[in-house]
Design a protein around this nucleic acid. Structure first.
Length: 428
RNA sequence: GUGAGCGUAGCUCAGCUGGUCAGAGCACCGGACUGUGGCUCCGGUGGUCGGGGGUUCAAAUCCCCUCGCUCACCCCA
């Protein structure tokens, strides 16, 4: 049997409803802040990611799906979304439009990694970028949109971690500070951190090994070494968050994995996600477009891991998204079976979602199935009903039945009370 | 790239140191209740025990290889 490639997943019904519901909220919220969707290719020239994400990052040096096309050009399945957006901004001269541009995207990303809980080779991100504004207000608006999105999904246990990564000059200086502080104590660090000290000293700060944390605690925070400009910027972002009542944690150890970030960086973590708890990561990238050969256009954005998000979706949101909003039409006997599809089509045309029982299972089995799959009403059609031009509609929850004329079913359906929240979490 | 664990019915699993070991529960279909669910009882469908090789009189059970899955490290969504 042919199996799916490692690290990929099949999104099956009814879980696909959850994804659709989540994406609908994203479009709604991000659209409400002045955003519009941007769709860029799933693969790009390899060079784009090497130059934007950064040569020294793990993403570029061991996680990219890179392949030559038939003409020998090196292409790469996108490992993240921002690079493509930046490229599109340049290529389509979006700088000539009124700035800033608020753009969101939803779609798959690819990283060649060993599978793990919450980690896939093909995974989906929901991202939002604000390009063309360098103000703290832009960062704050972005975070507000993100916060609003999570609120609408019903989350109440997420933590926003925020840090100042400084400007690139600050960071270069800071790397020297770290090296100077840690080199003498090299032996106290774990093997990984000794390597990090050479390649990416910032990473030592968020090492999980306790002994490393002890050592790292003595290193001054980046924010203290950073220049006045970046410190003021992030302070103003924080002031806005407080004013908006958006709770966050100032995490001086927070370092992000992509080279292009500067100043404001943040993560959203869920306490219900085990090892890979990061639900969302983002930050400011004022040099990215310039590094790609364009003008100095500032930007700030984030990406939410949709797979992880769906995994910890609040029960109430899930229940609402999974409810089966349809009439279950069960024909009994040959004559009814012949008439069922036409009846269903007429109801569908009148705006009523209908699922017809087409396997011929017994009424008993059909009712059992209706109950199990969360239908609210079953419309039974037998010889008597057919003769009378009615359908016997049974309300599963109330266990009551009434005869409803064929043409009156749409009105009856619309007259049903909103579904109770009593079935919450039943399918989770 | 490194390390560990696991692969038996659609699902969750039992099967002790090799000898009725091919099973249970759930699910599915049917019946008790000839057109009425969420309970109960009864019956039924369903498995090359991941695949290949080896040891043995005998392997789901032991050994080797292989494929797949899972978890952790690294790193990230």
């Amino acid at each position: 049997m042919i199996q799916r490639p490692r690290g990929t997943r099949d999104l099956l019904p009814p879980e696909s409803r959850l994804w659709q519901a989540v994406e609908a909220v994203a479009r709604e919220v991000f659209g409400s802040f002045g955003g519009a969707e941007i769709r860029t290719p799933l693969f790009e020239a390899t060079e784009l990611f090497v130059r934007s994400v950064g040569e020294t990052t793990d993403i570029v040096h061991k996680e990219m799906y890179t392949f030559p096309d038939r003409k020998g050009r090196s292409l790469t399945l996108r490992p993240e979304g921002t690079a493509g957006v930046a490229r599109a901004w340049l290529e389509n001269r979006l700088g000539e439009r009124t700035q800033p541009l608020r753009m969101y995207y939803i779609g798959p990303m690819f990283r060649y990694e060993r599978m793990q809980h919450g980690r896939y080779r093909q995974f989906s991100q929901i991202g939002l970028e604000i390009v063309g504004a360098d103000t703290p207000l832009a960062d704050a608006e972005l975070l507000a949109a993100m916060h609003e999105f999570f609120l609408r999904l019903g989350f109440d246990d997420l933590e926003i971690h925020l840090n100042n990564l400084g400007d690139p000059e600050d960071r270069a200086r800071y790397q020297d500070v770290i090296r100077a502080a840690l080199e003498p104590r090299r032996s106290e660090l774990c093997a990984d951190c000794q390597r990090r000290l050479e390649e990416n000293p910032l990473r030592v700060l968020d090492c999980k090994v306790p002994s490393c944390q002890v050592v790292a605690a003595d290193v001054p925070a980046l924010d203290d070494v950073a220049g006045e400009a970046s410190r003021r910027h992030v302070a103003q972002v924080e002031a806005q968050l407080r004013r908006l009542g958006i709770p966050y944690v100032r995490n001086r150890r927070l370092v992000r994995g992509l080279d292009y970030y500067l100043r404001t960086v943040f993560e959203v973590v869920s306490p219900r996600l085990g090892t890979n708890a990061v639900l969302c990561g983002g930050g400011r990238y004022d040099r990215l477009i310039a590094d790609l050969g364009g003008p100095a256009v500032p930007g700030v954005g984030f990406a939410i891991g949709e797979d992880r998000l769906v995994e910890v979706l609040p029960a109430g949101f899930k229940a609402a998204a999974l409810g089966t909003p349809a009439v279950y039409l069960v024909p009994l006997g040959d004559a009814a079976g012949t008439a069922a599809l036409e009846l269903a089509r007429n109801w569908v045309r009148a705006g009523v979602p209908v699922e017809v029982e087409i396997t011929g299972r017994s009424l008993k089995a059909a009712l059992k199935r209706a109950d199990r799959d969360g239908f609210r009403v079953v419309a039974m059609l037998g010889d008597d009903e057919l003769a009378a031009g009615t359908v016997t509609v049974r309300d599963l929850a109330a266990a009551t039945q009434t005869a409803v004329a064929f043409a009156a079913v749409p009105a009856f359906w619309r007259g049903l009370p909103a579904p109770a929240a009593g079935r919450e979490g039943e399918r989770s």
